[in-house]
Every structure is written in C-alpha cells, then in structure tokens.
Design a protein around this nucleic acid. Sequence first.
DNA 1: GCGATCAGGT
DNA 2: CACACCTGATCGC
Length: 607
Amino acid sequence: MSSFLGRMKEYPYISLDRFDRENLHARAYFLSHCHKDHMKGLKGPFLKRKLHISRTVRLYCSFVTKELLLNNPKYAFWEEYIVPLELESPTQISLVDEASGEKEDIVVTLLPAGHCPGSVMFLFEGAQGNVLYTGDFRLAPGDASRIEHLHSGSRVKDIQSIYLDSTFYDPRFYQIPTRELCLNGISELIGNWINQSSYHVAWLNCKAAYGYEYLFTNLGETFNTQIHVNSLAMFKKMPEILSYITTDRRTQIHACRHPKDEEYFQGNRVPCGCTAADGTPLRIISIKPSTMWFGERTKKTNVIIKTGASSYRACFSFHSSYCEIKDFLSYLQPVNIYPSVIPIGRTLTEVTQMLRLMCRNQSDRSAFVYKPLGVLKRSRVQQPTYGSQSDDELFDGLELVPVRKKMGPNQDAKSGNVPDPAAPPPCESSPLMASDVQSAAQNYFDCTESNGEEEEEDADEEGKGEQGDKDSQTCPAQAPKWEDFFTTETLTDSQNSQSRSCCSASRASGSQTPELFSDEEEAADRAGFSLALSASSSSHSSQNVDSNVADTLILQPGGGASQESSDFEVACTPESTEPQPEELLLLYRKLASGEDVITRKGSQGSS
DNA sequence: GCGATCAGGT
DNA sequence: CACACCTGATCGC
C-alpha cells in the first residue's frame, strides 16, 4: 500500500494521489489512477471548501480517470475542477500562490502506466529538474524505451528523481509472468471448461477495483461473448470496454460480485444467482486472479493453480515485478529514487539501499550516459513530416524509421488482439486491448506485431525541437478519448529488448529460448556501448498562450484533436545514402541491441 | 449523523 | 504469497 505522502521534494507546491493533511494547501492536484488508496482525502469537506474559494486549484488526470472518478457521486463536486489531459501531451501549468500571487511554471506529461484503465505516470519538467512520478505501474521490460517523452531527441531525458511504485521491488518477486502468458492461461482454462456444455460456467472472482477490464475484453473477444458484471455505468463512455461486458446473466463467463459471493459459489451459485432456464444445475468453476511470482532461477511458471475441486487461482498482476522495475530504472538512471511502497517484510532503509544501486551515480558513471533507445512505436496514419533540421538532433532524417506498416483504424485490431496459438511462446507485453481501444491507442504506438517478429531496436524518432513554438492549445473538446486505457498494452515489441532485460521471456515461460543475461553482464554490455552525451533537458519555452483552462497551456505542436506531435514524427527518408556520423551512432545502437548491422538496412520496412 | 481509523475478511 | 477493496466496530465531533 502506498506510503507516499503526496508531495515531491522538487515540486512541493503540488500534491499527487494524496489529498489530506499538508496536501490541502497544494496549488495543483494530480491523480494517477482511480484506486481508493490513491484518493485519500479526495472527497474531504476541507478540499471541497477550498475549491470553492480558489480560482486556480485544479485536479489533473487522464480522461478515463476523470470519467471513472465522476462516476462515483461522492466525487461529483470535482467536476468543474478537473482538467483532463491527453496522454503524451506536455502541458504547462502555472502553480499560483493565490495569497501572494507568486507563480511557478511546470510542464507535466501523462505517460501510460499499465496499471488500470486511465492510469498514468506524471513526468514533471521545471526549474527543479525532470521528475517522474510513476503512480502504480506495470510496464514490461523495454517499455520505457518506447515512451517518447522520456526521451529528448534520441536520448533518455535527464531524470532527477523517480517516485517509484516499489510494490514488488524485492528479489523475492523476481519475475511475474507477462500479461499475455497469464491471459493465455486463463483463456485456456475457461475454454476447456465452457466448451463442454452450455451449463459450464466460469466465474472470475475479481476484487472490487479497476484493472481487470483487459481480461474481460480479451476473453470476450476470444470466446465471442460478453462477460457478466454488476454494472456498466462507469464504462458508459468507453465503448471499447462496454461491448465486452453485459448485465445479462445468461452468459458463460461471469465477473459479477456479491457480498457473499464465496458462499454463493460454495452453494454452486454464481454471485448474480443465475440458473439455467431448464433447471439444469450449472457447473461452475471459480477463477481468482491473484499475483504470483517466481524467483530468478525458476523455470516453470505455472500461471494457473488449482485450489479446490472447482477453484483456481490465476496469475494476474497490477504491478511490475522486480526485474521489470529494474529494467525500467536501469534504463532511466535517475539521480534519486524514492519508493512509494515498502514491500511486505522490508524496511524503508532496505528498500532505499537497494534502490540506491539503481541510481545514476551508483553506476559509477558520473556523466549522463547515452543508451540505446528502443523502438518508438508510432504508426500514426499520416504523412511523415520532416523534422527539425537542427544540427544537434543527431538522428534527424535518418532512415531509422521504420514506422512499420500503417494500418487503418480497425485493420489490425483483430489480428493483434488474440494471440496466435501457433506462434512461439509469447514473451513480454502483449496486445491485450479491446480492438477499439487498440486502434485508438495506435495514435501513439504501433500495436501490430505481437508474436515475436524481429523488430528494430533503434530509435526512430527525431528530437524534440523547441517545444513551445507552436501555440496550439487544445481544448480536449469532443468526445473523450480512451487511448490511455492501457496504452502500454500496445507496446508489443518488448521481445526485442529481452537481451537487455534482466529477466528474459525464457525464464518467464520456461521455454527454450537460450539467452539468459545476468544483470552484471547486461550492465557491462551496455556500458561498453555507452557514449557520453550530455543530456539536453528540453526547454519548454512556451509562451503564454490562451488555453481553455486558466493557467494551463497544452503544449501540442500538432494541435487539434488528433494529438499529433510532429516533433516526434519520423522522417521517412526515401534514400539515405551519405555515411554520416549519425549513422555511426545508429550502428552503435544496433550493435548494442545485438542486431545484425550488415543485413538490416534493406529490410527495414518489412517487419 | 458523519467521518476517520482500525481489525478482519476476501 | 499480495492487492484493493469491503464490512463492521469504535471513537471523536
């Protein structure tokens, strides 16, 4: 459980995920996701009064979080004070002391967190440096490298501090099977059961919390059915979820709940009390999603465990495993890391010490270090733009660009959604989204490949130039977009980062994949290819442009509803012939990622 | 009557 | 195995 008190050293005027005590005086609030333990004080009467008086205090969150929050009448008073932000859209916020008029500007960017619908991490950039607050998150190894705004040009941003979801930052939780593995296991179990007869029913014993939705959407898709749930209300504006759930009890997959549902189940009833029309007794199995973890050397990672005659536990995790966290941290190498959770049986001191090893200065490199950038999967359907020509953007215009096949909004949805059973054992993250969500999320990431096709390791984006030179403030006007529903699920190509990850898919799946890099080897490997480049912290020299929200400036170069960010558009260079210093860097990066540097070039577009 | 907190449950 | 709740008891206002 989060022990984060709500404020960060660097930016003490803002409060995140805590709304009580000192946080009552914050100049701005941030909510990373809609779980109760991150909403302490949020319905408090003090806050209510303060909002009424204040002209400037607002609550910033994703569109989905706003929707889920306002679904609960207890938080309805927030409605006029919430400023929903799009994912990946740097937004300038003025933090105003209403008494003195003193003001400090900060730029915040919401990044996908993969924890539950609407969950985000907050990247703050301001006078006290770049600070990342992860909220709760589950990202697969390699995912950080695909998040654009953690990069400046082709480099990882200089992160001063990370406020980290350290729930599983303990070697004991070394590996947790990937979402795809877990989902496959659950699908297989359910399929084997409900295919026996129409009286065979599976009950998913989920807790009362957001975060299981991708399970429902994928099972619904796989079995061409809808899952029975208690209420649809909170998803009424999210068709991509809504289409896979129902309040009609006549379905073979239930995720409904009842205060005495365990008792019900013992009495061979589903929580909703549904029975077969002809009186035939149902054959019910219960499947309880719960976290399972495995040690470093554990090869066999069974994701389904039978716990009774018709009861099962199925692996499911909202949080990153130890090695997923390590991968994340070792990629970003912040100066400081602050744990927001102390794992059970640990002390703050222990966790802090372990985290210190992941801090930049502990990697015996005092300079900020270049690291290979993973593929920024963007398949936005639009013509490529040729980026800033500034000389210091080393990778401008290179042909590293393989923004893979662009597809229509729906074209990929089905194919990407259901894992191919014939494909090799899946590895890291997987496309576990509902098709509509998936296509929405495509605005940000390519989510086609899910099953191990080789992919580029290289950065394929160009640097962000001057940020604030466009004044296209957007009013997130029209229908809310739900692309921040599990956007991380679309980061499908983490296979290509396995060799750099501290835990490989072969461990997770017990499969035959041979490579097993130890952390030490990996560190050495990377260090060997490190080029000392200075990190230019992006200067958000944005002018004060009107925005729909006072003191809030949405920094969106592309402007408009499409959230286009031409800063990151990949230059689709037809022929790139001149051997440039940049190409050398490209080569280094390919080498660092273990790619075949000789044969790659011609095959870029084919993945 | 309300909210906050804790214990105990899934 | 933990998580993110929920319920119920107790306390203070």
